[in-house]
Design a protein around this nucleic acid. Structure first.
Length: 876
RNA sequence: GGAGGCGUAGCCCAGUUGGUCAGAGCGCUUGCUUGACAUGCAAGAGGUCGAUAGUUCGAGCCUAUUCGUCUCCACCA
């Protein structure tokens, strides 16, 4: 099979993926002879399609799972999608709106029908996109957070927690989104600083004309819900007011003045209006003082009948009107600009209202303790480690989790009420009648669960929980969870306490945190900026491997990465380089029987590249084990390009273009071996192209996907040959440099005079020196003095090389170079001497270091002498 | 208010436990169609590692302070 000149991914990526899939390579089954390695995918939301951030997440996971699979683990990457309750519902409502329908018009049943259609469409699309990325997911286990399996798990968990008293219903202050008309958990609120005003309002004191208490507020529209004004008990200004009664303006309601430590003397006026129904702190104050909780706002953000004449008005309109009216009646003392943080719904971005509402909660205190413990005792490790602090911070200050949502798309809360006898049934199977009185009029709770309630169970619900299936037994706990730092609270933390509570075991051993993908200017990708990158377009243009390479190259754990066209291009260039190197190897291997390495006679170059390969394997494996994929990738990249292509391939040309068939066969065999091993190292990162090339190698019998990952072998490091080749390479580089610096034409071949006591090495490798450095004839001389003509020189470690000037034109440049070299050598000498003169260094530094320094000094002194000698000669 | 990240070549970033680590890529300069590759090859230029002080025989790496920048958490009405 003929390889094309340039790498062209479109030709093979689709075909290869299909082939893998058909052969069943992605499927993992419990196997006692193998060790399991499991990753569950962070299920993408079915709200739309995959973005570049997903591509990063999936590429990391796929690379890890492919690595482990090749290492011989029973590697399972379990795929799936998330119903994303509120996010999807928002999208569907938008879609309906464009059709001119509201969700209420459609009704719950009709709405859910549309939602499932949506799920089919977008869920399917996401799966296709994952496949195009090359994801080696076990599709036979594809899950969805609302499928039968996961729903059963949700039901089981809810009932268990309820029966333990860890789920309860209560009226508390929650975050309410008036736009989505649902409660939100604390984590679902995003705060941002906004310019507003601090309004100072006079509340008249009852029975004392012209006396006012001035309260400062940012939310005057909630004043109708005020049930007290609080002052600090130690505030001398207001001591006499405590216990008195105030008249709430505009509605002329009587409210007391209470004292509470919560009030800060320094802030505002020192008097705080207390609105228990609309502020979390006020709610607490209200509890302490037994205050009435008066809710003045409707679910949609309009004012209700308790707000008097403002009834029905939107909250912001009401704020404006209240201020105007207070001003009109002279009760607005003043207002000043004020910046404060306002909470917004993480889905629709509208500002949320703290509101008292009856909701379902999970009691967190007991669940959090063991979840903290498993991280403290290292059962679960965060990479990078600094995220453990963020985790502790959240877990240690956690409040009860509001899990009910006033939405339709999601897991409906498994609670049934009996209107006849008031029985509440929390059960695993849908009941048809009241278990107490037998009434059939029972009805189910209208609300659904927070979408994260089901995601929290993902590592075990997908494997069969509550049933102890063979899969659950074998693959749980999973090994690594790969995700962005943005969902540590939403998801990672909740999976940890859920796993511990329901499985009695951690859900995963380590958490690999990555950052977000930014654009080429370092900006976050966003719809408003329009700077989003569609991974599919990148695949269309460059291929999936290039996309993957770009995402992985330079990923440092936990930090954000930039994505740019330049990056894509340099990734593609690398793959193209590798492609062509392979093409070279294959062209030369044609018609030659490839020998196993053991039967090859290895020369110094072969041993050198094998040693380099060996240490590359060691380093790459080490980095992979640490999930440091960026480092691992750059390690193979460097080996492939700088060692294999730039040096080894060039070195083999003397053999390949020579006449000796045995040497040729040996060389081809080594080339094939090294290439094949390198392809394996690269396969987890760029699976398609490595497979395509691998299939073209002679003697390939299987897919590279299921081949064995290269292993480090101490016997395959040839230390002496490494040293020899370093010398040879030094000589070649020196000759090249001299030629360039003296302005010799590239095509011009030069003679080379060498002073050395290691003539054998030069003789053994003279073919390479001649070919790679453009050298004509190599002669040995005993010393510089023996040379009669004008030469340019280079002093190396153990070698002095001289090139007769001949027609080489410009030696002034060489003099310049020598001078600057002299300068740096003198610098080194000064540094070494300084160190060695330092008593502290001699006595306290390790001995080998001191010795090394002494040797260095000697070496540089010798170098200096020779450089000066040469300089003197040129200048004469 | 609390916590954390980052600040190294023109740009974007690597630098494991302090001692050949001052590095890669892109860009730049010079020269090359050298029988795999111009998506390439060869040779170069370019940085007092944000600032200051300290610990140490020795600091990009440790400590303190400071400046700049970004992020997360809390949310004093």
């Amino acid at each position: 099979m003929e390889m094309q000149k340039n790498y062209n991914p479109q030709e093979f990526e689709g075909r290869i993926y299909k082939d893998w899939e058909e052969k069943g390579y992605f499927t993992a089954t419990p196997n006692d002879k193998k060790i399991p390695f499991t990753i569950v995918i962070p299920p993408p939301n079915i709200t739309g399609q995959l973005h570049i951030g997903h591509a990063l997440d999936e590429t990391l996971q796929d690379s890890i799972i492919r690595f482990k699979r090749m290492q011989g683990y029973e590697a399972l990457w379990l795929p799936g999608t998330d119903h994303a309750s509120i996010a999807t519902e928002v999208k569907i409502v938008e879609m309906l709106k464009s059709e001119g329908i509201s969700k209420e018009e459609l009704g719950r049943e009709g709405f859910l029908k549309r939602a499932w259609q949506w799920k089919e469409q977008y869920g399917g699309r996401i799966v296709e996109q994952l496949k195009r990325l090359g994801s080696s997911c076990d599709w036979t286990k594809l899950a969805f957070t609302m499928d039968e399996r996961c729903s059963r798990a949700v039901r089981e968990v809810f009932v268990n927690l309820y029966e333990k008293g860890l789920i309860y219903q209560g009226s508390k202050i929650i975050n309410w989104c008036p736009c989505c008309k649902t409660a939100l958990s604390d984590a679902e609120v995003e705060y941002s600083e906004e310019d507003s005003y601090f309004w100072h309002i006079r509340y008249p004191v009852k029975g004392e004309p012209d006396r006012f208490v001035v309260v400062a507020t940012t939310r005057p529209e909630t004043m109708f819900g005020d049930t007290a004004v609080a002052v600090n008990p130690n505030d001398d200004r207001y001591k006499d007011l405590i216990g008195k009664t105030l008249i709430l303006p505009l509605v002329n309601k009587e409210i007391p003045v209470v004292s509470d430590d919560y009030v800060d003397l320094e802030f505002g006026t020192g008097c705080v209006k207390i609105t228990p129904a609309h502020d979390p702190n006020d709610f607490e104050v209200g509890l302490r003082h037994n205050l009435e909780v008066i809710r003045v706002m409707n679910d949609d953000g309009t004012m209700n009948e308790l707000s008097g004449r403002y009834n029905g008005m939107d909250r912001f309109e009401c704020r404006k009107r209240v201020i105007e009216d207070l001003n009109y009646i002279g009760l607005l003392e003043k207002f000043e600009p004020h910046k404060h943080n306002v909470g917004h719904c993480y889905r629709c971005k509208n500002s949320v209202e703290p509101i008292v509402s009856k909701q379902w909660f999970v009691k967190m205190e007991e669940l959090a303790k063991p979840a903290i413990e498993v991280v403290k005792n290292n059962s679960i490790k965060f990479t990078p480690e600094r995220f453990t602090k963020i985790y502790y911070n959240w877990m240690e200050n956690i409040k009860d989790w509001c899990i009910s949502r006033q939405l339709w798309w999601g897991h409906r809360i498994p609670v049934w009420y009996c209107p006849d006898c008031g029985e509440v049934m929390v059960v695993k199977e849908d009941p048809t009648s009241c278990r107490k009185c037998g009434s059939t009029k029972i009805y189910q709770d209208e609300d659904v669960l927070d979408t994260w309630f089901s995601s929290a169970l993902w590592p075990f619900s997908t494997l069969g929980y509550p049933e102890m299936t063979p899969e659950l037994k074998y693959f749980y706990p999973t090994d690594v969870l790969v995700t962005g730092y943005d969902i540590i609270f939403f998801w990672v933390a909740r999976m940890i306490f859920s796993g511990l509570e329901h499985m009695k075991r951690i859900p995963f051993k380590s958490v690999l945190i990555h950052g977000i993908v930014r654009d080429d200017q370092g900006r976050k990708m966003s719809k408003s900026l329009g700077n989003g990158i569609d991974p599919l377009k990148v695949i269309d243009e460059y291929g999936a491997d290039t996309l993957r390479f770009s995402l992985l190259s330079g990923v440092a754990q936990g930090s954000d990465i930039r994505f740019s066209k330049e990056k894509c291009e340099s990734s593609r260039n690398f793959i193209n380089k590798m492609w062509n190197a392979s093409r070279f190897v294959l062209m030369n291997a044609e018609g030659i029987e490839v020998l196993p390495l053991e039967k090859c006679k290895l020369n110094v170059c072969d041993k050198w590249i094998l040693s380099k390969l060996n240490s590359c394997i060691k380093n790459v494996t080490l980095s992979m084990e640490k999930f440091d994929l960026g480092v691992a990738l750059s390690e193979v990249h460097d080996f492939m390009w700088y060692d294999f292509c730039d040096w080894y391939i060039e070195l083999t040309k003397t053999a390949l273009y020579g006449e000796n068939q045995v040497v040729k066969q040996n060389t081809v065999s080594v080339l094939i071996y090294v290439l094949s091993e390198t392809l394996k190292l690269l396969h987890p990162f760029i699976p398609f192209v490595t497979e395509e090339i691998y299939q073209n190698l002679p003697n390939t019998t299987q897919s590279i996907m299921v081949s064995q990952y290269p292993k480090y072998n101490t016997r395959k490091t040839y230390k002496k040959d490494l040293e020899k080749m370093n010398s040879v390479m030094d000589i070649i580089k020196a000759v090249r440099a001299i030629k360039v610096q003296t302005g010799a034409p590239n095509s011009k071949k030069v003679d080379l005079l060498v002073v050395t006591n290691n003539q054998k090495l030069v003789k053994d490798t003279q073919n390479y020196i001649q070919k790679l450095a453009g050298v004509n004839e190599i002669k040995f001389v005993s010393s510089k003095q023996e040379i009669n003509e004008k030469v340019v020189s280079q002093i190396l470690n153990g070698f002095e090389i001289y090139i007769p000037l001949g027609e080489l034109v410009d030696i002034s440049k060489e003099i310049e170079r020598l001078k600057s070299e002299l300068q740096s050598v003198e610098g080194e000498i000064a540094r070494a001497e300084g160190k060695l003169k330092n008593e502290g260094f001699i006595s306290k530094a390790p001995k080998n270091l001191v010795d090394a320094e002494k040797q260095k000094l000697e070496k540089y002194l010798g170098l200096k002498a020779k450089i000066m000698l040469n300089l003197k000669e040129y200048e004469s």
